[in-house]
Each structure stands twice: as structure tokens, then as C-alpha cells.
């Protein structure tokens, strides 16, 4: 192979610089969470797991974690069911489909504070008390676009002849849906669900605005920050970060197109 061209070297250098500048801060809290912190400084000579132990004993944090999981699961169920239905509608029907798509994407593209405020005003107007229900509704409105898009893309890549073949072989519309369409969408639905969960897990702005007395993990973290930087925060950030990364890797596994069962050949 010939020597790399100057343009290649230049591009590589820029890429490396951007990667280091943008992403290295993410690793600092993870690394430092495993060391003792005294007087606000990390003591790199004394590794410890004490912050994690303290975190496990913190009832407020554990309660927030429970709330986050409940909200996440409810959001996933709601957004996967409605996102799939909306994608099916968009794929199969004409009436109002471009407006529908616009409305679905709007809350995802708007600044969260605007979405959050709009929801807050709406809930007040219809007299809905702020609670976990309003948080779940807020999250669903926000993450719906992701599930919808994921499922729609799979639908559009599915060969139309699969559905035709099913009818041709005597199946009814209902049988075709359950036995052909849904199984071919399932991995996209799982991938969309994981992404939806990851988004819900991290969502802060809308949650702060529409939640009642219970706080989710990121909201709890926000509250802790106001009282000053403590070692717990490091550990908590590290945990949330690692969990989110794990979810994204999982989601990618389900969403990257693959030929069914080729790996078994």
C-alpha cells in the first residue's frame, strides 16, 4: 500500500481531536467514581468502592430508581403500541399522513422545555393532577417519534410481496397481520422499545415540569447538584452512563438489518 495522502492524515487528525475533546469528559466521572474524593478533589492514590456502597444505602436514590423504572416501562408499553399502530397507519393509508408524521416528530424536535411547558399548561387546563401518570404521558409524547420511525423503516423495507403471498395463500387480513407482518416487525419493535426506555430513563426537563412529588433518577440527580458536588453524584452519573450505553448497544443489535438466521448456516 502506498503512503497515506496528506488529506487522509488531516482527516484522521481532526477526527481524533474531536473524539478526544468531545468524549473524554464522559469518562472522567466514571473513572473518578472509583477513587476517594476529599475536599472536592479526586485522590488518585486511593481507589475505593465506598461511593457505590453509600449509593446502595441511599433510600431516596433507590426510590428514584424505582420511579424511573416504572415510568420507563409504562412509557415503553404505551409508545411501542401506539408507535406501531401509527406506523402501520402511515404505511397503509393516505388520509392525513403527512400531517400525522409532522405532529409525531414535533415534540421530539422542539426544545424539551417548550414541550414540557406545553404539557404542563395542558394538564392544568384539563385539571389533571401532576403525578407519575403525567410523567408517563410526557415521556410517551416525547419518545413516540423514535419508536414510530424505527417500526416504519422496517415496514418500508419489508417486501410488499410477503403480504401479497400471504393473501394469495388464502390468509385473511387478520392472519396476515399476526403471522406475517408482526413477526417481521418484532425486532424493530424491541429495538425501538430499548431506545424508548433509554430516552425515558435520561429525560429530565419535561419530567421536572410535569412530575408531582415523586422524582426520577435524573431529577433526583439535578436536585442533588443544587446542594453541591458530592461523591455520590459521580457514582450515580457513572451508573446512568453505563446503563444508557448498554441499552444503546442492545438496541443496535436489534435494529441493524440482518438476514434472518443466516448466522446458523
Amino acid at each position: 500500500m502506498s503512503a497515506p495522502r496528506p488529506s487522509t492524515i488531516f482527516l484522521a487528525a481532526i477526527t481524533a481531536l474531536v473524539a478526544v475533546l468531545l468524549y473524554s469528559p464522559l469518562f472522567v466521572p466514571i473513572v473518578s467514581s472509583f477513587f476517594t474524593i476529599s475536599h472536592g478533589n479526586v485522590d488518585w492514590s486511593s481507589p475505593t468502592l465506598s461511593t457505590y456502597v453509600a449509593l446502595a444505602g441511599n433510600h431516596e436514590i433507590l426510590a428514584a430508581l424505582r420511579t424511573t423504572l416504572i415510568v420507563g416501562l409504562c412509557t415503553v408499553v404505551l409508545s411501542v403500541v401506539s408507535g406501531t399502530l401509527l406506523a402501520l397507519y402511515y404505511h397503509g393509508r393516505r388520509f392525513g399522513r403527512s400531517y400525522l408524521q409532522f405532529i409525531i416528530f414535533l415534540p421530539f424536535l422542539m426544545p424539551p422545555i417548550i414541550s414540557g411547558l406545553a404539557l404542563l399548561i395542558f394538564f392544568r387546563e384539563i385539571g389533571l393532577e401532576r403525578s407519575l401518570l403525567t410523567v408517563v404521558i410526557g415521556h410517551t409524547v416525547f419518545v413516540l417519534a423514535i419508536v414510530y420511525r424505527t417500526v416504519l423503516m422496517r415496514l418500508q423495507s419489508m417486501s410488499r410481496t410477503l403480504v401479497e403471498a400471504s393473501y394469495d395463500l388464502g390468509a385473511t387480513g387478520w392472519q396476515t397481520f399476526w403471522r406475517i407482518i408482526l413477526p417481521n416487525l418484532s425486532s424493530a419493535m424491541v429495538g425501538g422499545a430499548i431506545l424508548a426506555f433509554a430516552l425515558s430513563f435520561d429525560e429530565t426537563m419535561i419530567t421536572i415540569l410535569v412530575t408531582g412529588t415523586q422524582s426520577t433518577l435524573p431529577v433526583r440527580l439535578w436536585a442533588m447538584m443544587r446542594l453541591g458536588f458530592s461523591p455520590d453524584i459521580n457514582a450515580l452519573v457513572a451508573l446512568i452512563l453505563m446503563f444508557t450505553v448498554l441499552l444503546c448497544v442492545l438496541a443496535a443489535r436489534f435494529l441493524i438489518p440482518r438476514q434472518m438466521a443466516t448466522e446458523r448456516t
Binding site: S159, T161, L162, E164, A165, S166, Y167, D168, L169, G170, A171, T172, I180, P183, N184, Q259, M260, A261
Partner: peptide, 20 residues
């Protein structure tokens, strides 16, 4: 007559085998 009631079956150009 709807397609699923016709006593005909098709072999599609792309075969349209159900991948799952």
C-alpha cells in the same frame, strides 16, 4: 372475488418466502 378466496396460487418473481 377477493384474492384469498380464489383457487389460484402464485409463485412470485422474488419468491416472497416468509423469512421468519
Amino acid at each position: 372475488m377477493p384474492i384469498n378466496k380464489r383457487p389460484f396460487n402464485t409463485v412470485f418473481q422474488d419468491y416472497a418466502l416468509f423469512p421468519h
